Each structure stands twice: as structure tokens, then as C-alpha cells.
Computed example of a mutant assay.
Amino acid sequence: MKKVIMDVDTGIDDALAIMYGLESDALEFLGITTVDGNVPLDMVNRNTLKVLSMLGREDVPVFSGAAGPLMKPSRHVHHIHGEDGLGGALIDYPYENMCEAQFAPDFIVEAARHHPGEVTLIAVGPLTNVALAFKQEPLLGELLKEVVIMGGIVSRAGQGNSGPNSEFNIFTDAEAARIVIHGGANVTLVGLDVTKQAVLTARDIETLKGSKYYDFIKQSTEIYRTFSMDKFGLDGCALHDPLAVGFALNRGFLRTEHHYVDVDTVSPLNYGQTVCDFGGLWGEEPNVNVSLEVDSARFVEDFLNVMKNASGKI
């Protein structure tokens, strides 16, 4: 199985991504690292531990990471993920598992050194932990097999979700994102170009009725779907983070191209923009696989099948 580390800021779609990855039985989770993002770090830790407890996977170690961006104040989005970060779905859920003592960036470096060329790092939150790991180990890009990032937007100008041309994870810590993008790793950017097309609708959720996670998925996504309905007229939840896991599971879900990408950390208009040089005007070597098309129907079907086939009771 493919060895993975997931770096998360566990809100609703992070939880779905963790569930998808673990229930797929195709990925070997070396650990999960947490970072401040959708909600504050202590809430991210609590949510991650609760989700693992719900899955019966307390064996997966969780490593607490950065409590805020490298250079900016924290920025949270409770209006999308709820006051607890999971739409109230697990507020009273019991859990006894705890975070490990080791700092998340230290764990990332240690795991990469212990398994050189084998570890896929799936980062679905702000890239603060990952940047700190790259600064600690300059050869980390060579030690990791690949880095799959849910973040950015490259081909759909004006359709960002934190600025007209910026996506939340990159915008939250653009300085960290720039370090990672230029860190020499095999990077794939799974951005809003494709994730906004991968939507879990209310009708999709109803196909899960009677399955293990139906209640959790329906309740947790309700606030997310309400936000989508109010803003976009769509009763659905974009599967941003699960699609990054989906790419790790099946390359066929996405069409990517290799281009040079940089991150804007200066402009007041476009801070956090992932600027892709499609025409090679800068003459730089390509450094990122950018996702441009998604087979959304096949991906959503796979996500639903994995959820339907999950065994046992919560």
C-alpha cells in the first residue's frame, strides 16, 4: 500500500477526506498532522481525534502542528464549518485518543527520512507545517515521493474563494505555500479549478441511507450545503479535500499538466494567488503538476462506494 501522511485543518471536508482515505483500505497512514486553518488548532486536534475514534482507527497517530501562519494572524471560517468545525455532528462524541508529543513538522521530516522515496504527503490545509518541515530539512523534496496539495486556482481567474484569484489554504499562509512550491518536491496542485466541480449533493447523500456514515455525513455537511445554497444556489458540499485523497488513490480522476507556478505574497489585490506560467514566458523550469480537468462523476461515485462499503457501526 502507498504510505501517506495527511496534513489537515479538520473541518467538514477534511473529515470526509480522512474517512475516504482510511476506509479505502488502499493507503497506509503513517500519521496525521494538524495545522491551524478552518478552525483553531485545538479544535482541529479535537475534531481529528474524534473522527479517528468514530472510524475505530485510534491506531493512527496524530501530531499537533503550527498554531498559526508563518507571518500573519490566524483566519478561521466557522460560518462554513460550524462553531465546532464539524457542523455539530460530533459535539458530544466520546474519544480517549490523544495527540503525540512530537511536533508535526518534526514527524514529517522523520517519516520521510525513515522511508525515503516512499511517502506521499497529502496536504489539505494551510501549508505552515509543510513549510516548517522543508525549512528544517532542505532535502525533504527529494526524500518525499510526492506532495499532493489541495490548494490554489490556476485557470479560472476571478473564481477564488478568499480573493478573486486566491484559494483559502494558499491565502491563509501564502509565504508557507511559496516555500513548499519551490522546495524541490514532486508537487501536484489540486485546486479550485477541479474541486469546485466535485460536489456531493443532497441526493448523493441520500444514497448512503442505511450505511455506517449516513448520519454523520448528512449532519456535518448541512451547514456547508446551506452556505453553498445561499451563495451558489447549490444544495451540495464541494469535496475539496477528498479529491486530493482521490488523486492519491487514482490518478485517472484528474488531468494534470506540468508548469511553472509561483505564489504571490506581495500584491494587495492578488495575495495568495497561484500564478501559473502556461506559456513559459518566464523561462523557468516547470515545478508543479496543475490539475485542469476532473472526472467528477467517477470520483464522486468512488467516494460514495467507499462510504457505502464501510463495515461496522458507529
Rank of each mutant, 00 (worst) to 15 (best):
I149T: 11
A176N: 07
I205Q: 06
L143F: 04
V154D: 09
L208C: 06
S155G: 12
R156A: 09
A185L: 03
D215A: 11
S211G: 05
G183Q: 10
S211R: 11
F216E: 08
Y213I: 07
V187I: 15
V148T: 12
G158D: 12
F171Q: 09
V194S: 05
T201Y: 02
T201H: 05
D173T: 14
L144R: 01
I179N: 06
N186T: 06
S220T: 15
T221H: 08
I179L: 09
R203M: 07
S162E: 13
F216Y: 09
S155L: 13
A198Y: 00
L189S: 13
F227G: 02
A157R: 15
L208A: 10
K145W: 00
V147F: 02
N165K: 05
V180W: 01
A198P: 09
A202R: 10
L208S: 10
Y224C: 06
Y214N: 08
K196I: 03
E206K: 10
M229K: 15
V194N: 06
T207R: 07
G191W: 02
L200W: 01
T188P: 11
G210D: 11
V194H: 05
Y224K: 11
A157E: 13
K209P: 00
H182D: 15
V154G: 10
V199K: 12
I170Y: 01
K209H: 10
L144N: 05
E222T: 13
I223E: 14
Y224I: 10
Y224A: 09
L192Y: 00
I205Y: 03
K218S: 07
T201F: 03
R225C: 13
I153F: 02
I179R: 00
D215M: 01
F171P: 09
L189A: 11
L144E: 08
D204Y: 00
G184S: 13
K231M: 15
G151Q: 03
S162I: 05
V147S: 09
N165P: 12
Q219W: 00
L189N: 01
Y214A: 04
I217L: 00
G152H: 03
V180Y: 04
N186E: 10
T172Q: 12
I170T: 15
V194L: 09
I217K: 02
I223V: 15
K231L: 07
Y213L: 05
N169T: 15
I223H: 03
I179M: 10
E167L: 13
I153Q: 06
G210I: 08
I181W: 00
I223F: 02
V194T: 14
G183P: 14
T221V: 14
N169V: 12
A177D: 14
V190C: 07
M150T: 11
K218Q: 06
A185Y: 00
N186C: 06
